[in-house]
Design a protein around this nucleic acid. Sequence first.
DNA 1: ATTAGCTTGTGAAATCATTCACAAGACCGC
DNA 2: GCGGTCTTGTGAATGATTTCACAAGCTAAT
Lengths: 208, 208
Amino acid sequence: MKRIAESTVRRLSLYLRFLEEFEAQGHQTISSGELASQGGTTSAQVRKDLSFFGSFGKRGLGYSVSALSASLREILGLGRQWNVIIVGAGKIGAALAQYKGFRERGFKVVGVYDTDSARVGRSLDGVHVKDQRELEGDVAKLKPQIALIAVPAEAAQPLVDRLVKSGVRAILNFAPTPLTVPKGVTLRSVNMALELEILSYALVNADD
Amino acid sequence: MKRIAESTVRRLSLYLRFLEEFEAQGHQTISSGELASQGGTTSAQVRKDLSFFGSFGKRGLGYSVSALSASLREILGLGRQWNVIIVGAGKIGAALAQYKGFRERGFKVVGVYDTDSARVGRSLDGVHVKDQRELEGDVAKLKPQIALIAVPAEAAQPLVDRLVKSGVRAILNFAPTPLTVPKGVTLRSVNMALELEILSYALVNADD
DNA sequence: ATTAGCTTGTGAAATCATTCACAAGACCGC
DNA sequence: GCGGTCTTGTGAATGATTTCACAAGCTAAT
């Protein structure tokens, strides 16, 4: 299949959110325009996004909420449980470990690791923090597909290398540093200070 | 001035990071190629990004690390302190309140608010959590330019409306829901579950 | 069965972002 | 001062994404 733009995948994910809300409200069908207004985009964009994957609607009618939800879940790979490990049990790692939103969407935290002995042994929402030396062994055993990185910037790249070597194929990085991964491994980064700097730029240039 | 793409601003922010590291290592000059290899981009991209704002290098030599750092800080509006409030003192709000990276880059947390009386009064890294009823009064007094939102999804939009009404012009949202703001207000969202879903998509479609 | 009223799916056009490619400078060594 | 070697700054070309615009398809009402 043709490569799909990340912006498209991101929007599909948003559409799914909204479809679930809509379904809970008992609606049966939804039009591209309604979907668009929630996601802050246009009806043409919605239709184009969906068209990459097939044809899901009925002309004149719109989309079946439940059928489209199911299709999007399928497309996004959410019909299953993903096992996730979190490395780094500081403030951010701990908050992530306890974040309910992950579990609700099929992402199960199966391990939390740290190097600091003061943190090892603590329990975070049912999962207790293990020593980072156990990482390789656990990855081999539990086969988590996704790792979240919440360690200091300087520890992040060596950690990524270890994770990749152990077979992790998808990484979400919260350390404020750019990382590199080999081809075949997907890396995404969330950098909160950077987001604030973009806001700072917007404030300073408010008169554009 | 011509409108600058967000992707450009994001990269400028990254370049600044490296420049600071590079400066700490005692280097005087840096070429667009060196800057690019750090940021995972190309030298042409670096030069193009900078060209929107002026001409900062010397042909044959590269860029003065300190001069370019200063220019980027100026462009990004980082030559000053920004006052930030955080609304929502749950796991994520608390982690944000204690995140050192913000302070280091000139973002000072001047208030943390929650509605839950069990959380009100707690101290998070020197700032203590206040009742959300004090929000409007404090915003009028402290004039924070930026608000971080870490409340449940359903509480987010009403909160945004209150913040905007009180004069906040930039918002960073961590609630997993799309929000709308009037023109003149900048909103950015960080949605962690969404990032995981994008990874999920990548894993399922690894063979593209 | 026809019409009226919606809404989809999709090429084509327009816009936006990145990469290319090269002239114009700048420094160094001789 | 001149030739050689870098590296910038930037139009032009390419590539990617979004928006437009409209034919085609479906439902409901009469």
